[in-house]
Simulated assay, not measured.
Amino acid sequence: MGESNRTTGFAAEYAAVRDLPTDELVEKYAHLVRRIAYHLGGRLPASVDINDLVQAGMLGLMEAARKYAGDRGANFETYAGIRIRGRCSMNCAGWTGCRVRYTAGCGA
């Protein structure tokens, strides 16, 4: 019985996020971009500008907002975090060697 209530709650959450316009999703989850960018930036060389990571992460967030389908079982924050990290990893590739990217969690 508890499982049914939990499933219903997830469905309501997916519907609420899915119905938000893209720009509202981006505004609501912009804090996630900053959190991930600062987390990754702390593991990268000082030459990497945190603002570049934030900019790349925002592109990932916008992509996530456009492509999110809540019926696949992941909540939006989880899905967006993957997209944000992916976008940051694309930028990390130009700044660092493979060892640093792997250590920072930027991919590879």
Rank of each mutant, 00 (worst) to 15 (best):
G2W: 02
G2D: 12
E3S: 07
R6K: 10
R6C: 00
T7L: 08
T8P: 00
T8K: 08
T8V: 02
T8W: 00
G9V: 00
A12N: 00
A12C: 01
A12L: 01
A12P: 00
Y14N: 01
A16D: 05
V17E: 03
V17A: 01
R18Y: 00
R18V: 00
L20I: 06
P21N: 02
T22D: 12
D23H: 03
E24I: 05
E24H: 02
E24K: 02
E24R: 03
L25N: 03
V26C: 04
V26H: 03
K28I: 13
A30G: 07
H31R: 07
H31S: 13
H31M: 08
H31A: 11
L32G: 07
L32C: 09
V33I: 14
V33A: 07
V33L: 09
I36L: 14
A37Y: 12
A37N: 12
G42K: 05
G42C: 07
G42A: 07
G42H: 04
R43P: 08
R43Q: 11
P45E: 06
S47L: 03
V48S: 03
V48G: 03
D49G: 01
D49R: 04
D49P: 02
I50G: 04
L53D: 11
A56Q: 13
L59M: 15
L59W: 14
G60H: 08
L61M: 07
L61E: 06
M62W: 12
M62K: 07
E63S: 15
E63P: 00
A65W: 10
R66W: 07
R66S: 10
R66D: 14
K67V: 05
K67D: 15
A69G: 06
D71F: 03
R72Q: 14
R72H: 14
A74N: 14
N75T: 04
F76L: 07
F76E: 02
E77D: 12
E77C: 11
Y79E: 11
A80L: 13
A80F: 11
G81C: 12
I82L: 15
R83V: 02
I84A: 13
I84L: 13
G86A: 09
R87A: 15
R87I: 00
C88R: 00
C88D: 09
S89D: 08
M90H: 09
N91W: 10
N91L: 10
A93L: 05
A93S: 08
G94F: 11
W95S: 07
W95F: 13
W95C: 06
T96V: 14
T96E: 10
G97M: 01
C98W: 05
C98T: 06
C98M: 05
R99N: 08
R99T: 04
R99S: 07
R99P: 05
V100Q: 10
V100D: 13
R101Q: 14
R101I: 06
T103H: 02
T103W: 01
A104T: 01
G105P: 11
C106K: 05
C106D: 12
C106I: 06
A108W: 08
